[in-house]
Write a protein that binds this DNA or RNA. Structure first.
Lengths: 140, 140
DNA sequence: TACATAATGTTGTATATACAACCAATTTAC
DNA sequence: GTAAATTGGTTGTATATACAACATTATGTA
């Protein structure tokens, strides 16, 4: 009975739920950030880099569960926008990533906007939902 | 102090966590489905369509929090693979979507693989995490 | 030391995602 | 009953995502 399988998957699949949540939250933050030409995924990378004085792309990709090729292309954009600077590292293969002054200023500007988006997101997902996102993600 | 903002965002942002979770889970399911030429997002659509005898793209997109243009392009692929059939509806604008026999057979084949992926996902996110995904997503 | 192996980053290809702009058709308003 | 607004779907453009293959550079081993 394929119909049984269909309903089982539809109702129980974690990926189905997570994808919907991901689309909804990304929309919410992106919409708030739009006037600043920034997307939430880009802010994600920006703060990921800014957390350290200097990060190598390979390490950042590992920390974010992201493929190195994805990061490579995301960084192209952040470089082009002038928010991130890629400098050669000691190791002739690797690089060092830095957030520029312009990037830091953007983070400062966006923070209150981000806080409002956070509130909307919390309202959307509920108290329990928000806590849960954390507990689930922390296990990675 | 931009550094304070950086850490605040890094530690508290729901979108940051959710994006990591999304990447991790998508990888997990996609890897399991790879031998079948199917991705978890495609299974998502397939069961979404199969749930009803006939759905219109606009309604499906709404139900999944998905833009109509995204769905339009996803459906192109499912049509090309022969898993979905798009037929004209009564309304001269809209369409009716149907899962083909080939698509139903694929769902049947993939179900045990999906169940194993579900178990791995549950292990990854923990008891609380899985419950949370549901409570958060159900509020949309 | 030379050769195999691993690590780093980029590029080709495919899919997923959304916004804006558009065309066609339908519904609403006046 | 026609004009305006809405709805449904596609297309142009940009970003996000990953796998496979590749070139370059370390690292390890024989």
């Amino acid at each position: 009975m394929p119909a049984d399988h269909v309903h089982e998957i539809m109702q129980k699949c974690y990926a189905v739920r997570l994808r919907r949540l991901h689309r909804a939250l990304t929309s919410l933050y992106d919409e708030a950030f739009r006037p600043y030409g920034l997307r939430v995924g880009q802010l994600n990378l920006l703060v990921g880099i800014a957390c350290h004085d200097s990060v190598r792309p390979a390490d950042l990709a590992r920390a974010l569960n992201m493929d190195k090729s994805t990061l490579s292309r995301d960084l192209e954009i952040l470089n082009a926008k002038g928010w991130v600077l890629s400098l050669p590292g000691e190791d002739a293969r690797s690089q060092h990533l830095h957030v520029t002054d312009s990037g830091l200023k953007l983070i400062e500007t966006i923070t209150p906007v981000w806080r409002m988006a956070q509130e909307k997101a919390a309202e959307l997902m509920g108290e329990e939902g928000t806590r849960a996102i954390f507990t689930a993600a922390d296990r990675l």
